[in-house]
Amino acid sequence: MATIEARPVGFFTDTSICIGCKACEVACKEWNQLEGNPANFTADSYDNTGQLDAQNWRHVQFIETLPSAANDGNGNGGKAGGAAVIPTPIAGGQAWLMMSDVCKHCQQASCLEVCPTNAIIRTEFDTVVIQQSVCNGCRDCISACPYGVIGFNEKTGTAQKCTMCYDRLQNGMQPACAKACPTESIKFGYLDDLHKAADARLAALQKGGYTKASLYGRDASVYGGLNAFFLLMDTPETYNLPNAENAKLPSRNNVPGYLGGAVTAIAGLIAGVLAFRSSRMAEHNPDAPR
């Protein structure tokens, strides 16, 4: 693209063709000048990034299942010790799912909803960005993000996450991760174009027998739709994504929370008045039983 119009853009991440090369992670760190976390031995995975955070704005999840622990070798899934969710092997083979995870740039963004300083904004490209010059590091957005996307940068004292390369978009360039992805698992474009491409890809996979393939965030069932949406080969939970039933905004607890507090406050005041009144009555009438 020579220029990118000010209309909704996004990522369509097709996990069926992700090879786990982590080129997206490298490109992201390089462009955004992220130092990365110190090397860490995760012990139970080939993944050495771990999670999305202030230094990892892209993270290729490796969802690994060892044959002995997770299935009987005939394509039947099972429970492995310590693993919360075991993916069902695909097409009768061993499951080793990969997904380049990223900020979802939700239409109904939990982080944007709770941010008290208005540091988190929606841009002209319909993406969600944390303004580093405004954020004061209160971390309310970290508490709210249902995807565990946002991290706290100790050096800058601010919350950080993927900006969908806002600076590149403003200069007519696609985000670094999409540019670097060798298999085009990460596709960048205008949202309506991506929706069409995703629908076509899903139809092709389902025709090929991948009946569990589904689109996550393509429609409004999850946070009003995601600007960074995914084609998944298993359930959302397998990829550490809340399903539609569990995708809830923090504000759902505003009214019940305040109401519970108000009712308790009134009950507390009544309890206090009763206690002090009975004490006063007893003072006026010392012979009365307490």
Binding site: R139, I142, S143, Y147, G148, I150, L241, P242, N246
Partner: peptide
Amino acid sequence: EHFAAAPHW
């Protein structure tokens, strides 16, 4: 289901 990160409050 909860996949949120801790805010370290």
